[in-house]
Design a protein around this nucleic acid. Sequence first.
DNA 1: AGAGCTTTGTGTCAATTTTACACTATGCCA
DNA 2: TGGCATAGTGTAAAATTGACACAAAGCTCT
Lengths: 251, 251
Amino acid sequence: MHHITKKIGSELNPNVSVDCVIFGFDLEQLTVLLIDRGEIPSGSGPRMALPGNLIYDNENLDQAANRVLAELTGLENIYLEQVGAFGDPDRIHKESDREWLKTIRAEPEARVITVAYFSLVQMADYKPQASSFAKNADWIPVNEISELAFDHFEILQAAKEKLKQKIKIQPIGFNLLPEKFTLSQLHRLYESILDKPLDKRNFRRKIQKLDILSSLREKQKGVPHKPSLLYEFNEEKYQELTQTGFDNFGF
Amino acid sequence: MHHITKKIGSELNPNVSVDCVIFGFDLEQLTVLLIDRGEIPSGSGPRMALPGNLIYDNENLDQAANRVLAELTGLENIYLEQVGAFGDPDRIHKESDREWLKTIRAEPEARVITVAYFSLVQMADYKPQASSFAKNADWIPVNEISELAFDHFEILQAAKEKLKQKIKIQPIGFNLLPEKFTLSQLHRLYESILDKPLDKRNFRRKIQKLDILSSLREKQKGVPHKPSLLYEFNEEKYQELTQTGFDNFGF
DNA sequence: AGAGCTTTGTGTCAATTTTACACTATGCCA
DNA sequence: TGGCATAGTGTAAAATTGACACAAAGCTCT
């Protein structure tokens, strides 16, 4: 009678999905990877949405999120963290959303609870392209997003907030940067996540005191100003740090 | 074919449940309200579980959590916050859990994702009693809990951690105390949530600086030692504080 | 009534952390 | 070579933290 009476492990669960807020950083500002659903038949309504999909009955939630991420970007072993569950019965109320669901879901009217995740990726690792998921995918600066499909805007807000809290407690921001980066880039990253200016000297002092950066004997090339030293993230020290635990970056 | 083709809004969703970690404080230590499932037929396995239930298709997740809380305790308008979603396909692997589900669920083999909440209640407001939920319910000190049904122990850990983080950022601990309380009680509450000793004088200094307590001209009665002054939580100041936002209690 | 027990309530000092703030150095470009 | 843009650096005042000890109040017991 219900899907659970079917063979377990082989099918989509019509009631539970995952959505991923995939953050990137273009060295200027925080961005999110959104999919473009193309022209919405009924004309109105936002075209952009978070990547997401129903879960399979034989995978756990983390696996589902990793799968969605991999299906869209091909990336694996990416930093991923749950934001929470969202499940208003009327979270699908825009006409454009209903119509779209008809084109992609076997049961477009099902009441779906979605579990949101956020992930941090190095933008350079993935150049957006069309996929099974989407007519198109794009990195969009978070500040420029004002509406999304379904309740995805709400989810985005929650993900931003969670990231904000988390980065005060763990130096996860490195997941967003290329291997070699400058302190100024790190500085701008923190500013864009925390959404407030941070004093340059004080920021540098604090970060350095964490002692998780290795300075390279290497400088930026070709910039029209004084070149910056490049740094690497020192995983060893980071592990030490997370072991002993630290409560506060103090930003 | 699936339950979603039925009339929406009237039925249990067989795939999604909520579980509540209901915290209390007995003025000595942090406690959790657990239900006792009674003798487990197969003999082995934990008897205690978190209160929880499947959601209805016409309620959102917060409503479902509030409903479960109200059904068990009769309490309403209680502090409630989502912890996250838990959904291992094999989260129901103990034999005792399978058997119990057979007695309470229409579809005991369904793969269920549960959304966990934690809530803070004043223990005095609720005296445990049997209910539709449980043969019995009881306040159990969190430190004395070492196993629970399903993945409830894991959920409890996550809820404790979330509470720990949250209380560093917002003075939500007041939800656990009676209207009038002493600074020592508040002190012990913070110690038991943070699970570490806090210096008495430093604690008092910090709390007082928040300026959200009103001292009453009233003392404890009948205690075999110097009586303590009683305090009230000052909601007005609290609102001010949460508006302007404060990032850190600094514990 | 007094001794003893238990918990309350209080202050200071040293060390650390935070905040605010401005100028020189380096490399490109025109 | 001068101009432009960003990198990189130090200090002093203020605030916060952490460590620490003893007198006061009320009850109980004898």
